[in-house]
Nucleic acid binder design. Structure first.
Lengths: 347, 347
DNA sequence: CGAGTTTATGGTATCGATATCAATCACCGC
DNA sequence: GCGGTGATTGATATCGATACCATAAACTCG
């Protein structure tokens, strides 16, 4: 037996059916009126929109997602939200996809592959239309889930040897190598590396790898690396590290840091101790953070256009979604974005 | 006429019904087995989880949300994702809610009320279980939508005169006022304010207001304020501003900046020009960013525990959600978080 | 002017889960 | 051995939109 419930309470939000009834049309017509593409006469649309306004109706996309099989979500995993490089990428992604009515579902992995795996699972639970990750390495299970999710995947900030699907990135190792070569060109011969030993920060590990390759190629004294705890590496840790570095190898004349933040911390510590930068030791960073452009001495670094990585990743994803819709099946796309060594006063 | 579709394609993800059929139980039992609380015998659960694994089944929450009328989303609006104060708050919120299986839906307002209004609308479309905003002022329409959404609302980073629902924040004006008083106590008498004139950054405007009140109370020369463009304010802009400031009022002995970032930029510019900080001019900031603790001179600032604001906002929201579930109806909660003036070498 | 096409709209099935209530079964105490 | 209690499971209706197809009206053109 079905009983009609009569409620006066305006608590329960209005449904599309109610709007339809009130406007004297079918629910389907209301649905069309609320999409931009829907073919509805101008007059009807006006009437419907007025009713929507009157009832304070808000479309329920979670219901729409179920029937249309498109959620309009793009899952995005970044290592940390506090790192402005990654948040710039997230912003770029947002800019690229919001014009298509897509919305970002953001998660932080804390530089941890296991956390990434959990997040991939949690995100897939929301049935995103696509997913963008900030890494080229994953746990086997995460990889499997990404592959079999049946949605476009974009790996960014890396150039994986064996991509899952699409890629928008650059080689952290190559970038770091280029930076060391530049320092060599400037005349430095005892070059050390600070950071990047953590198993967690794979991009940092790649940068260290590039450093190692470079010192080998150039015949410089190898093995001068200092590491510290888990990412995210702080400015303070950069300061501590450079002190250890100079204690351990007093002849070093340049330090490449895994990121500008640690480079900045290192330089400030040098100031406090009266070590001239670059007189006593040159310091370079990675990432071209705002602080590096603004501090004194300004920091030599590797610049990548982080926002652009996001824009391109979003663009590639949109393209892939279009391909699915149009039943085209082009192969995965790999886009290599440029990096640039910027020489400043710290070296 | 209905035709049975036989597909070999594993493209289409498995459904709960398929898992159920394969495990020889009903869909309802699968659903229970996948929730932690569900009452299912150990033996059945094991069998179901094995089948889930075998088929690579991933729960579809977007379908679950429709029937349970709970999406598990918490919408969070922050002014900018690149500002580590706000991203720390977002991180705190995530920490607080993820234990309850809730997920954050993040949006950036770009310090723009109109954008906030659009975002509120877009977010409500996803039917979040609650919403957290980083402001106490909103467009009339945004306010109306928040009020009538029928979900708990938490306003943070502010103490609105007329709260919508719950509040977790502090008075930016009071904090700024306290900072000026501290400078006065240190002996500064010609104190200026940099930033915060934008109609967009209401927190910045409040800080400027607190400054004005303080100089009035203390009988100091008023009106020494410099503003610059729209937020987010950059380090570079802080540098430009302090130059204008000193040109315009050569007798200023201290500058309060709307944020640590502009304070840092100002200090660096002073370095470049050979103006001693604090000898020629003292500089204070707001927000206790990492750079202020690490640079030299370290920057006097107002510290707020940003992550804690997020944790508390999350906690308040969870409480409110519990209240709804248990049909309790306590009044809105207002939690005032402390701030602290930290005196360092820049003043 | 009639066949063919386009435009606007509605009816119905369906997306994939969960709420709710009912049914079954084992076990317990007296 | 019987009613009662709690644990486990299932059947069915439903959440609120959109896809898909059908239909009616208006319009096009040789």
């Amino acid at each position: 037996m079905k009983r009609t419930q009569i409620r006066k309470s305006p608590k329960r939000p209005a449904t599309m059916a109610e709007v339809a009834a009130r406007a004297g049309v079918s629910a389907m017509t209301v649905s069309r009126a609320l999409k931009s593409d829907g073919a509805v006469s101008e007059e009807t649309r006006r009437r419907i929109l007025a009713t929507v306004e009157e009832l304070g109706y808000v479309l329920d996309l979670s219901a729409g997602a179920l029937s249309s099989k498109r959620t309009g979500f793009v899952a995005v995993l970044i290592p940390s939200i506090n790192n402005s490089n990654f948040s710039d990428t997230a912003r770029g992604i947002t800019e690229a996809i919001e014009s298509q009515g897509l919305q970002m579902l953001l998660g932080y992995t804390d530089y941890d592959m296991d956390k990434e795996e959990q997040l991939v699972q949690a995100m897939l639970t929301r049935r995103p239309d696509g997913i963008i990750v900030t890494d080229g390495r994953h746990t086997p299970k995460a990889r499997r889930m990404l592959q079999s999710a049946g949605i476009p995947v974009v790996e960014t900030w890396d150039l994986p040897a064996d991509p899952i699907d699409h890629v928008v990135g650059f080689s952290n190792a190559e970038a770091s190598r280029a930076l060391v070569h530049r320092l060599y060109h400037q005349g430095y011969r005892n070059i050390a590396f600070i950071g990047g030993a953590s198993r967690r920060d794979t991009r940092g590990a790649d940068r260290r790898l590039g450093y190692k390759r470079a010192v080998e190629e150039l015949g410089l004294p190898p093995g001068r690396t200092i590491s510290f705890g888990n990412p995210p590496i702080s400015m303070e840790q950069g300061g501590e590290a450079i002190v250890h570095l100079i204690e351990q190898w007093p002849d070093v004349d340049a330090a490449v840091c895994v990121s500008d933040l640690s480079a900045f911390g290192a330089i400030m510590e040098c100031h406090r101790r009266g070590w001239a930068v670059p007189g006593r030791i040159a310091v370079a960073g990675f990432g071209d953070f705002e602080v590096s452009r603004c501090c004194w001495p300004r920091i030599t670094t590797v610049a990548v256009d982080c926002r652009n990585i996001g824009l391109e990743a979003g663009r590639v994803l949109l393209g892939a979604l279009d391909d699915v819709r149009e039943k085209r099946t082009p192969g995965p796309e790999t886009l290599i974005v440029p990096f640039q060594v910027i020489e400043r006063e710290s070296t």
